[in-house]
Design a binder for these strands. Structure first.
Lengths: 157, 157
DNA sequence: TCCTTATGGTCAAGCTGCTTGACCAATGTG
DNA sequence: CACATTGGTCAAGCAGCTTGACCATAAGGA
């Protein structure tokens, strides 16, 4: 075993504990948000759709933009958009400045779903505030932001 | 929009920021551990295998145990074990107390890979200590542990 | 201008990891 | 000793993604 790592200030077992806690928290939070969205009446949506919504929300985006945001191929992004169109959450509009491109924008249902996800997230995080307190949650968020500034938007494993 | 949520102490946008930071941190850390494991010469391993290793490490486990740990069907767990057997990381031994069951245990290569993952995790978390300090990392870990005690081991989305 | 290259998007085929369903061997329970 | 239960595998199918090919528009240079 690498002596440097073995003798590092942060012990291996601690690192694994942090990793496990991080994965558990992320997985649990994602799950709760998803359940909250479903409970609010939005069916046929997966967490992956939420990652797409965060990119589409402000002013829409092209399929290529979305693919870059999600870290997938543009074919995969196109299929995801097609699915969201079928389900009524987004629609394709002609791009105002490029006849090749198509601007994908949220429909009213898409906006409603996005708001539902925000509510569900606030609810789940609110439960955390009951354990850590408002300050604790803020500290957690700030620590994570400082530590993962450029992390992947769509964790895939 | 739900007024209760809108007026909640933790604002929706804050909740989404925390969620994004959490996902980015988890995704980034997983990615770095994976890269560290690959850099140490272990090929053909995916993060999902690491989740399996953490269950098999102490004394081995049955396929059914593993399936429960990973949150999948036992068929999926069986296929994963088959793959790990092919790659030399685990082996199936007869179960000492039940002739139906088979005990899946790590081989020497499996142990080496587990140690490599621990080293890579310690390395990645060590980099975080450079930003947050030792105390900051500890606080982060403790906060996460308090907030996600029973979260899923294998985040899937 | 025309030709060439780059870019946005889709269609089609294939692969991988998982699921459901069926089944067998061994266990335990009355 | 029947009979339901449990551990495990085989087989088929599905969902989400990838690679490869292709078309339409755009951008840039001679």
């Amino acid at each position: 075993m690498c002596q440097g790592c073995f003798n590092a200030p942060v012990q291996n077992s601690d690192a694994m504990a942090l990793t496990a806690a991080l994965l558990a928290a992320a997985g649990g939070l994602t799950q709760r948000i998803h359940e909250g969205v479903v409970a609010r009446g939005f069916e046929g949506v997966r967490p992956a759709h939420g990652f797409a919504f965060t990119r589409l929300a402000p002013d829409g985006a092209t399929v290529t933009d979305l693919a870059a945001h999600l870290g997938t191929t543009k074919q995969a992004a196109s299929q995801l958009v097609e699915e969201l169109v079928r389900k009524g959450y987004v629609e394709r509009r002609p791009h105002p400045a490029d006849a090749r491109a198509r601007l994908v924008v949220l429909t009213e249902a898409g906006w409603a779903c996005t708001r539902a996800a925000e509510e569900a997230a606030a609810e789940a995080v609110g439960a955390w505030a009951g354990v850590l307190g408002e300050d604790g949650v803020r500290a957690l968020r700030d620590g994570l932001l400082r530590v993962a500034p450029g992390g992947p938007i769509r964790p895939a494993w």
